[in-house]
Amino acid sequence: MSVADNPKRILVVKLTAIGDVLMATPVAKALRQAFPDSYIAWAVEKKAADVVIGNPYLDEVIVWQRSVPGSIPCRAAHFVKSAWQLGKTLRSKQFDVCVDLQGLIRSAFVCVLSGARRRVGFADGDEGSVLFYHEKYDPGSSDLNAQQRNLDILRVLGVESTDTAMYMPISDSDRSFAAEFFRDSGLEDCKVVAFCPATTWANKHWVPEGWAKVADLLWDRYHVKSLILGAKADIPLANTIVEKARSKPVISAGQTTLKQAGAIMERSVAVIGVDTGLLHMAVALDRPTVGLFGASAWRCFLKKPNFVWVAKEFPCSPCQRHPICKDVDCMRAITPEDVLGAVKPWIEQ
């Protein structure tokens, strides 16, 4: 690609989920370094917007509230209205190129709405999304980590990058919130390990008894407190863990934004989580992190010195959304002692 062909106005589409958007953030930096004078925008759904709002490599974040609660007719009417408004906004930006990192029909739909002259997407996109791309990139191996896979599609634009560092913007106000939360919760002078026990896939969960036992082991052996992060929907699980734990972890689930949760992670000595967006946010923030994996495709995650995995080798792992066992045996096989052993080096520092 010659300099004359450089795109002046670029739209990146990665709508959801939180972890997936985080693993796409290296693209923003790569594009900015390759095209420093170009206008670069990112389209994202509201539930994951905090991941990219404040990213210094972007000129604009365009947020789509695709769905709302309510009856089917109300939701359908909202979708039509929101899509029309989104399309109007996108077309007003006059994008040269739209890069779809999602590879689903709804993200391809956003590319079409943008009116971009070039629509770029993955050749292995799902749900017929490939029918809507002008240019298709074949990522090759399915074992490639998500960050590099997202970067590699930029080769269509003449961009080469291996900088897979994710970026999660945290503001001073978020850090002030975290400091106040620690004070109000009696954690200001304590070592704290943050738990991320919940995700939208039930078969990625670990058992509540396991979380409770880890909390008690941390307190009994190291005098380290535990804190449970999550969304409002995760409060029942958090309450169950607290009920089973003698050490009574503090619950922040349902009380924070994503960015505020990130600021709480910054104040924690380590983070332990299942395969969920908050876990990947901890990795993006370069926090010492322990991931508990089994049902999801964990083997292709990018290894780092301060990101260790606890997983048992089962022939059916990963089963993704279609477990063939009754009790998600791969997750139940993880023991509290396994988890404590993984996090112990950071606690003892």
Score class of each variant (00 low, 15 high):
Y222T: 07
E180L: 03
F182G: 06
I228Q: 06
G210A: 13
L187Q: 06
P197Q: 07
A212T: 11
C190A: 12
Y222D: 09
R221S: 05
V192T: 07
K213D: 11
E209Y: 03
K225V: 01
T199Y: 03
K204E: 08
D220Y: 07
I228T: 06
P197F: 01
H205L: 14
P208A: 13
A178H: 14
S226D: 10
L217T: 11
L187T: 00
C196K: 04
L218H: 08
K191P: 03
Y222S: 05
A194S: 15
D184V: 02
K191H: 12
A202T: 05
C196S: 15
L227Y: 10
A178V: 12
S185N: 10
F181N: 06
R183K: 12
D216K: 09
K191Q: 15
S176G: 00
L217W: 06
D189N: 15
V207P: 00
F181V: 11
L229P: 05
K213E: 14
C196Y: 06
L187G: 04
D184I: 01
L227E: 11
K204T: 13
L229F: 08
V214Q: 04
F195N: 07
V224A: 02
F182L: 10
K225F: 00
N203E: 06
D220S: 13
V214I: 14
D184A: 12
F177M: 07
S185T: 00
L218F: 07
F182C: 04
K191M: 11
A179L: 13
E209P: 04
D189E: 14
G210T: 12
L187F: 02
L229G: 09
E188D: 13
S185R: 00
S185L: 00
K213R: 15
V214A: 05
H205K: 05
P208C: 12
D184C: 08
L229V: 14
T200K: 12
L187N: 06
L217A: 09
S176K: 09
T200H: 09
S185F: 00
K191A: 09
W219Y: 14
V224F: 04
L227H: 11
K225I: 01
L187S: 04
A212P: 07
T200A: 15
K225S: 05
F182H: 10
E180P: 00
S176M: 04
F195W: 05
A212H: 02
H205T: 04
D189L: 09
P197E: 09
F182Q: 08
G186P: 12
R221D: 10
H223A: 14
A178R: 09
F177Q: 05
C190L: 07
F182E: 08
D220V: 07
A198Y: 05
N203M: 11
W219I: 03
W201A: 07
V207F: 07
